[in-house]
C-alpha cells in the first residue's frame, strides 16, 4: 500500500514551549483518518505543521514520499471555522474561488472555468442555492460546507480538515461523511480532526490518537481500544507539561543544534 503521509520525529513548539513531542507516524493512501485527543493535545497543531503553516522545531514531513513543496498542489487544507472573521466582505462564491488561487498563480483573476469548478463543488456540498449569500449570513453548518467546497475546488489528493463537524447538525454531518467516503473510494486520503468519540468506529478506517505525544496510530478496528483511550484521555503527563513550561520560561531551545543558529 502506498503512503500518503509520513511524519518523522516531529516536534512543534509555541513560544519555546513544545506542544507536540517526537511524533512518528505513517498514513496509507485512500483512508478516512480521524485524529482524536483531549483539548490541547496538539491535533490542530499536527495538521498545521504537516501543511507547513507552523514552523517545525525538529523532524520532517513527507507527503507521497516527497517534501511538501513538491506536492503542494495535491494537498488541501480546511481550517477551523472559528479561525477566520466571517464578517469579511465576501460572498460564498468568493470564498470557494479561493480554492482556485493556487492553480491560477499570482496576479491572475479567476476565469469562467474556475467558477464552473467552484459551482460543481458547491453542488457537492449542497450549497448551490447560496452562491451570492454574504458569508456572515450563513449558519455554522453552511460556513463549514463553504470551507469544504473551497478545499474541494483545489482538486487535491490529500485533505487535512480541522474539525469539519464542529457546529454542524446531524443531517449535514452525515452528508459530509458520505462525501468524504466517496472521496476515499477514489483513493483520495482524508485526515480529519474529530471530537466525538461515539462516531469514531463508524466513520474512520484509521485512527490517530494524540495527547501531546503520539499514543497510537493504526486501523480503527485494532487501534481504537479502551487501553489506548485510557492512555490518550486518562492520566495527564504533568511532568511533561511542567518541563515544557520550564522551557518557555527559560527561553530554552528545543533542540541542541539550534543553539548555534542565530
Amino acid at each position: 500500500m502506498n503512503t500518503a503521509l509520513e511524519i518523522h520525529d516531529l516536534t512543534v513548539a509555541f513560544d519555546r514551549k513544545p506542544v507536540l513531542w517526537n511524533i512518528d507516524l505513517t498514513i496509507p493512501q485512500g483512508k478516512l483518518v480521524g485524529i482524536v485527543g483531549p483539548n490541547g493535545a496538539g491535533k490542530s497543531t499536527l495538521i498545521k505543521a504537516a501543511m507547513g503553516i507552523l514552523p517545525l522545531s525538529s523532524g520532517y514531513v513527507k507527503l507521497y514520499d516527497q517534501p511538501l513543496e513538491h506536492v503542494r498542489e495535491r494537498v488541501s487544507y480546511v481550517p477551523q471555522r472559528e479561525s477566520v472573521d466571517w464578517d469579511f466582505p465576501a460572498s460564498v462564491m468568493d470564498v470557494v474561488l479561493m480554492g482556485r488561487y493556487a492553480k491560477l498563480g499570482l496576479f491572475k483573476r479567476p476565469r469562467k472555468a474556475d467558477k464552473d469548478v467552484a459551482m460543481d463543488c458547491l453542488k457537492k456540498v449542497g450549497m448551490e442555492g447560496f452562491i451570492n449569500r454574504q458569508i456572515s449570513q450563513l449558519s455554522g453548518g453552511q460556513q463549514q460546507r463553504t470551507f469544504l467546497a473551497r478545499a474541494l475546488a483545489q482538486q487535491a489528493d490529500l485533505y487535512f480538515m480541522d474539525e469539519p463537524f464542529a457546529g454542524v447538525d446531524a443531517a449535514t454531518e452525515k452528508a459530509i461523511v458520505t462525501l468524504l467516503r466517496e472521496m476515499t473510494n477514489q483513493n483520495k486520503t482524508v485526515i480529519v480532526v474529530h471530537h466525538d468519540l461515539q462516531s469514531v468506529s463508524q466513520y474512520f478506517d484509521w485512527i490517530v490518537m494524540l495527547n501531546t505525544r503520539l499514543v497510537a496510530s493504526g486501523p480503527t478496528e485494532t487501534t481504537f481500544t479502551s487501553e489506548n483511550l485510557e492512555a490518550t484521555y486518562g492520566g495527564k503527563l504533568t511532568l511533561l507539561t511542567d518541563v515544557a513550561d520550564l522551557m518557555r520560561r527559560e527561553d530554552y531551545p528545543s533542540r541542541e543544534e539550534n543553539v548555534f543558529k542565530p
Binding site: 498542489e73 487544507y77 481550517p79 472573521d85 479561493m98 488561487y101 499570482l106 496576479f107
Partner: peptide, 21 residues
Amino acid sequence: ALFKEFSLLAFDKDYARSIGL
C-alpha cells in the same frame, strides 16, 4: 494586480500559507 492575494491574506492567512502563496 495583487487584489485577490491581498484579500485572501486579510481573510484567511493560514489557508493562504497552505496553498503555498
